[in-house]
Design a protein around this nucleic acid. Structure first.
Lengths: 107, 107
DNA sequence: GCTTAGTGCAAAGCATAGCTTTACACTAAG
DNA sequence: CTTAGTGTAAAGCTATGCTTTGCACTAAGC
């Protein structure tokens, strides 16, 4: 499987919601919140990429937009991965080496 | 894309670690923990499916086992989704309906 | 037998995440 | 001006994810 390394942050699921669903459907954030049975603040935070799409929320989005929950959580996963790799303490990751066959600690 | 609904919980990434990596490599949980620069308890919890593979941990596993972080986080994602769908308050999800074209609240 | 390495698991502490309600200031439309 | 919608902040709450410590168990070595 070809895996090209991203040099830019993957899109946040909130952007998809905004541009691919809310705008075409001329659906407001407030209406979205009601539909998802969540608070307006939470809906707004997701749409504005300030809050993540959790597994639970992915299921709700899937029902609301008749899509798959995998889609939404997959987008979030890519987003999380990228930021975990870039925003965090990089020294930590750098110090992890591949485990080879000679992993046994030589006494 | 064919999407078959699972009737059983997806495998936890910890099981993959255990059977596909630790055992073949005869690598101990303690050694794994050291390699990942995490505590033995955390490593044990993951291997025994009691703790999730986070984005950060997925990156470490990827480095250690020379795999992709997407693999590990993807497994976790499937696991989370399934449990969010089954373990939780199902009434909540059931009440969410597809947003149709006539989403405008009729006054 | 005894010791040593490894194990799972529980407990406690701590920081962060994710959600809630409330509130405020802003825009756009009637 | 009023009304609906908005973004964002603040505070509170619960749940997560990680840590260290501790304990009881197993298996392997002598």
């Amino acid at each position: 499987m070809i895996m090209r390394k991203r040099n830019r942050p993957p899109i946040h699921p909130g952007e998809i919601i905004k541009y691919d669903y809310l705008e075409p459907l001329s659906l407001s954030v407030t209406e979205l919140a009601k539909h998802l049975h969540t608070s307006r603040v939470t809906a707004s935070n997701i749409v504005n990429t300030h809050a993540p799409v959790t597994a639970d929320m992915a299921l709700r989005l899937a029902k609301a937009f008749n899509t798959s929950a995998e889609l939404w959580l997959g987008l979030q996963k890519q987003y999380d991965l990228w930021h975990a790799e870039h925003d965090s303490d990089e020294w930590q990751q750098a110090s992890i080496l591949p485990i080879l066959s000679h992993h046994i600690t030589p006494a």
